[in-house]
Design a protein around this nucleic acid. Structure first.
Lengths: 201, 201
DNA sequence: GTCTATATATCGATAGAC
DNA sequence: GTCTATCGATATATAGAC
């Protein structure tokens, strides 16, 4: 069965996605023009509308993909664990995946963390729902660790947000040619998350 | 000696500052128009130019004030300590001030954390320098604690950024009518920072 | 699917009357 | 210091030729 027309991915459409992601993440959605995006693909602005209905549709396409990739990255990390793995192993896997994504896929991370406000109201609601689900998946790990007594924390919601946001911040300063590789940065944040949850052997 | 003309603060200019801060923080600099800012002050866009040379000058005025307030807030907290206070007390004071600012002055915090890219190159450089100085003031506390042996950490730079960014994230979710008051949130983050630096008695 | 040309809207900023 | 009127640039998006 062939793909539905709306899901066909032409080479040009992918070039547009790449160019738009780069510009939206670097300069912001409002400061990026269709002309500039088209120029970096090597076509004219009007031709963009053969691939996307509007500028906002490009942003939504990129946002949905980024949030989907973020969740898939988390799922892949958790799936590698022993099914009987406890909260501490699950927390480490989550943080490692979270930080790795925010280091290695900075543009997607920055888009999700700073450009949701430019989405249409309808798309914005859907993005917020996806973000809440992602946050809740960490919250569930935290709560499980509290229940088993492996985690000793003061406030589950603050702890959840603190772990998430310190990892999100990696997308602001990480550079591929920096002092630490992304896996090293991930390992550092795994340690921090363990300390926050009193995982100090 | 009277104030220099450039520092005169008229009531109207302050209303403009307040309206622009609200809009820049809420919708972003590029999505905010001079017409909208003027309308929320009750005047026309052209009249704004009697108080500020350009839209970017408003942003710079607000940015400089916000970063100055942030540093002053930190200095006030540290100044209340006993001069002989050690790194752990200094860290707690810094985090408490940092989180308190990001909770209680959300608009200023969001501006500094998301709109620096809209500044002119010259102003952008100055803002980055101020941000670096702020980060370095926390880094110095961390380093001092490592030197005395009170802090046991894995990577000083990662630790510094993690503490800063988890506190910065408070400006994203804090609500004055939420479950926790800003001082309670600050106390939670002081605990988290202590744990990260192995301050678990 | 690309292009040129253009419609329509809004932007920051200025000129000049009051 | 406010206003009306407007300039010039740029924005998204569309129409229609090729």
């Amino acid at each position: 069965m062939p793909q539905a027309p709306s899901q066909v991915r032409s080479a040009t459409a992918d070039e547009i996605r790449q160019a738009a992601l780069q510009q939206f993440a670097q300069s912001g959605y409002d400061a990026s023009s269709m002309r500039d995006i088209a120029a970096s693909v090597g076509i004219k602005a009007a031709s963009l509308y053969n691939h996307f209905d509007s500028k906002e549709k490009i942003l939504w396409d990129l946002t949905r993909s980024a949030m989907s990739d973020l969740a898939a990255n988390r799922d892949a990390a958790l799936a590698q664990l022993d099914p009987a793995a406890g909260p501490r192993a699950r927390l480490a896997a989550f943080v490692s995946a979270h930080v790795g994504f925010h280091a290695e896929r900075r543009h997607q991370a920055v888009l999700v963390n700073s450009q949701l406000g430019s989405l249409s109201p309808s798309h914005h609601r859907k993005a917020i729902a996806l973000r809440d689900a992602y946050e809740n998946s960490l919250r569930a790990i935290i709560d499980a660790g509290v229940t088993t007594g492996e985690f000793v924390i003061s406030d589950a919601q603050v702890t959840t947000l603190a772990i998430l946001q310190m990892g999100t911040g990696v997308s602001v300063w990480f550079r591929p040619d920096g002092r630490l590789r992304s896996d090293q940065v991930g390992a550092e944040y795994v340690k921090l998350a363990a300390l926050i949850t009193r995982g100090i052997a």
